[in-house]
Design a protein around this nucleic acid. Structure first.
Length: 284
DNA sequence: CCCCAGGTGTCAG
DNA sequence: CTGACACATGGG
């Protein structure tokens, strides 16, 4: 079904789903460019998407087709199997009940990488504002108030002075540096898609500004490596609280890696999903 | 003034 | 190899 408005061809269609909760999915902190009014609206793949949920169906207003939306929101994930695998104790059982339908999202690798570079020692509010400013300053205008996220090419030539308005602070040189290494062919970000979790991580941590945690975020949120378990302050906090006896003798500098390894053993190959439910819970 | 925020690079010991 | 510290920006 389609109709014409403001000289732009808009398509509205529905997707029937099971075990999807759009509000949890878009507000759990994994993405930074979605906003909820009546509908959720965001920019993905240089297009505006408006979407809302009515019961078990998603109503989508976008020129992006159903296949893209299904892939982006991982609507084909078999949540019954994933839940049964990660549901190892009372805590996860209660989180699955509480946040049922929270899906991981399959983000664009470049936008995801830059977003999580911005996340280091920062607040979600500041991250969101920086990403919005980068889009407004260096992306392309799509429609009123909506800008694409700037490509590596669009950021590669930019002078550090012109980046200051985006308020990335000490992270700006990392972002500009990575954009340049991608454009000149030194770093093949998109090639990581075909690598194993371990190989991809090795490649990502070679990048200046990317450590284990940011690498794990990109591997989970962009490349769909569900065995990735990013450990940040929130995850460390909640994991200490419920499973802390398992690493009480581990040195502080090794602790986050130990937590991630424990989670892989404990929650299994879909532990990335467990991570997002734990993160949601610790956000409060 | 202090502290902290989806961490990471760097540098003495 | 380990721990301490700086790194911009914004808010409590």
């Amino acid at each position: 079904m389609y109709f014409k408005t403001c000289e732009v061809l808009l398509y509205v269609y529905r997707i029937y789903t099971k075990d999807v909760n759009l509000d949890y999915t878009l507000s759990c902190g994994q993405v930074f460019r979605w906003e909820k009014k009546d509908w959720w609206s965001g920019v993905v793949n240089n297009e505006v998407i408006r979407i809302k949920q009515e019961g078990d169906e998603l109503i989508i207003d976008s020129s992006l087709e159903k296949k893209f939306i299904t892939d982006y929101f991982r609507l084909d994930d078999n949540m019954e199997i994933i839940y049964s695998q990660i549901n190892r104790d009372r805590l996860m059982d209660s989180l699955i009940i509480k946040y049922r339908g929270l899906h991981l999202i399959r983000q664009d690798p470049w936008e995801c990488l830059v977003s999580y570079i911005c996340s280091s020692n920062n607040t979600i509010r500041n991250i969101t504002n920086s990403i919005r400013r980068m889009s407004e300053c260096f992306g392309k205008k799509i429609t009123k108030g909506y800008f694409s996220f700037p490509s590596p090419q669009e950021l590669a030539g930019i002078d550090a002075c012109d980046m200051e308005q985006c308020k990335l602070g000490f992270r700006a040189p990392y972002v500009l540096g990575i954009a340049n290494t991608i454009v000149n062919g030194e770093f093949d970000l998109y090639g990581i898609k075909d690598m194993s979790y371990g190989q991809g991580r090795e490649e990502l941590v070679k990048v200046k500004g990317v450590g284990n945690k940011i690498a794990d975020c990109v591997l989970l949120f962009a490349f769909g490596k569900l065995e990735s378990f990013p450990v940040d302050t929130h995850i460390e906090h909640i994991m200490d609280r419920f499973y802390g006896q398992n690493w009480k003798d581990v040195k502080k500098s090794k602790k986050r890696e130990e937590i991630a390894d424990f989670a892989r053993r404990y929650f299994g190959k879909y532990c990335g999903y467990a991570q997002e439910y734990l993160y949601m819970e610790d956000l409060g």
